[in-house]
């Protein structure tokens, strides 16, 4: 008689101590897929750009005076790209075991990304045209607004990875109090064995996604500011 696959008597303790590799793998694959979804999301703007540009309905694709400011756009995209670059460099430090250096680069990356968002918000009010001024203006404001939202979310993600590194910088064993993040003070064991070891895969996934998003920002810069 084969051993039963499960018995009703066993409880939640079976779920504790899952090896972190599983979650790490899921994070990476999930990030690739999310990047795919993000690409399809921004493809709508790419399609809208070329479609409306080719139609030029009522001659209102880009009326006179509707030109996005190249200096503003360049500064914003440069800040995004620089932030993504610092995350990449920080990841290299983390892989090499230089955790202090990673944290330094992480905080710089966070500051640069947030600065990019602030400059973007100011930049909108200094463009000299509004969202109602034709097809290009619509694409410009729509694309940059959503890029803003996605970058904001990425900055949140960066902050969480950085904050965990910072909070447990002196913890050698990798064992924070069980249930600290789960809202369950009664929990006596981690559901992920050594949850701090997930900082690395988290950082790898973040670095990939932020680089990908910065690539979309560069594409937006070329189309919305230079073309």
């Amino acid at each position: 008689m084969a051993e039963p696959l499960a018995s009703p008597g066993t409880g939640y303790e079976v779920l504790e101590n899952e090896p972190p590799e599983l979650m790490g793998r899921g994070l990476r694959v999930g990030t690739y897929l999310f990047a795919g979804g993000t690409a399809f999301f921004f493809l709508c703007f790419l399609f809208a750009f070329f479609y409306l540009r080719s139609l030029d309905n009522a001659g209102m694709w880009k009326p006179k005076g509707v030109d996005a400011s190249i200096p503003w756009g360049t500064v914003i995209v440069a800040l995004y790209v620089a932030s993504a670059l610092f995350v990449r460099l920080g990841l290299a430090d983390h892989v090499a075991g230089r955790h202090r250096e990673w944290r330094q680069k992480g905080v710089v990356a966070l500051a640069l990304g947030l600065a990019g968002l602030v400059v973007q918000a100011i930049g909108w009010s200094h463009q000299g045209f509004g969202p109602a001024d034709g097809g290009f203006a619509s694409v410009y404001f729509g694309w940059t607004a959503f890029l803003f939202l996605f970058v904001f979310g990425t900055m949140y993600w960066l902050e969480t990875v950085f904050a965990t590194s910072l909070r447990y910088r002196n913890t050698l064993t990798g064992q924070p109090a069980p249930g600290e993040a789960s809202g369950d003070p009664d929990r006596t064991a981690h559901d992920i064995q050594d949850p701090l070891s997930l900082v690395r895969p988290g950082l790898e996934a973040l670095s990939f996604y932020w680089t990908f998003l910065a690539g979309i920002a560069v594409l937006a810069w070329v189309l919305l500011y230079l073309v």
């Binding site: 999301f41 709508c44 409306l52 209102m60 097809g135 619509s138 404001f141 729509g142 959503f146």
Partner: peptide
């Protein structure tokens, strides 16, 4: 994601007066 983006553009047209889908204004 294409659906989410498309509907967001429709919402922009209705709320902040963009012209993605208004032919007389370049959409």
């Amino acid at each position: 994601p294409v659906l989410v983006c498309t509907l967001s553009l429709a919402l922009f047209d209705r709320v902040v007066q963009t012209n993605f889908f208004v032919a007389a204004q370049g959409g």
